[in-house]
Design a protein around this nucleic acid. Structure first.
Lengths: 106, 106
DNA sequence: TTAAAATCTTCTATTAAATAGAAGAAAAAG
DNA sequence: CTTTTTCTTCTATTTAATAGAAGATTTTAA
């Protein structure tokens, strides 16, 4: 299996962390706060679509009417395949980073 | 500063690990063994050149005559800037992966 | 001493991913 | 009913990853 790209890793983990509140806008906010960087709309939605095509995440519709103005929300959840891809990249990272000085992983 | 790409992370850390034996072919071998995957020549040399342009690594010539047939070897070492980029990406990974089930980082 | 083989890098083309943001859809608020 | 908000779709552009042929340099072997 091909390795996860950086952005795929970040987006996947964000979805995992956001639980039942993972959708385009919330993922973007989460990543912005985490990295303290600007992220364009496309830099979130394009990977979301690609990860969906690869079946690493799947989309589902939220409740028909939720508070606040806006379009119907397209939520995402991570799939088994997505979790496997994360585990694989983590194993690689563990080998690669072994012995590196500085703060250890949490 | 822009985040390191996946391949940049892998190549940088390989150079760091290989110490005074880091050059194109040895980096490629190292990564192949680590990942148990095929890596084309270009998938190593292209990032090496880009990292050099970005001053995250620097090249130096090896001894004029070393054993084995072959062209003069172009060795690399990681720079301060390269180490900083690694530290930055590691910090991000530590936040991102916090709480993820499975083997912790080493 | 030349030819062949080995080791290594340069070069360039192609494919894939990241980044950017305008435009539009849907719902709530005024 | 118009405006404002929230959210996604779409598509263009830039950047990175992948591939491997070709060429350079050195050793080995004939």
């Amino acid at each position: 299996m091909k390795l996860l790209s950086r952005q795929e890793e970040i987006v996947l983990l964000s979805i995992w962390k956001l639980g039942d509140n993972a959708y385009g806008v919330s993922v973007r906010e989460f990543i912005s706060e985490l990295t303290d960087k600007y992220w364009s709309i496309g830099s979130i939605y394009v990977p979301l679509e690609r990860l969906t095509e690869k079946s690493m995440i799947e989309a589902y519709q939220g409740e028909p009417s939720m508070k606040r103005g806006g379009r119907r929300i397209r939520y995402y959840r991570i799939t088994t395949k997505g979790m496997e891809a994360l585990s694989e990249i983590r194993k690689l990272q563990n080998s690669l980073w072994e012995g590196f000085p500085g703060p250890a992983a949490s």
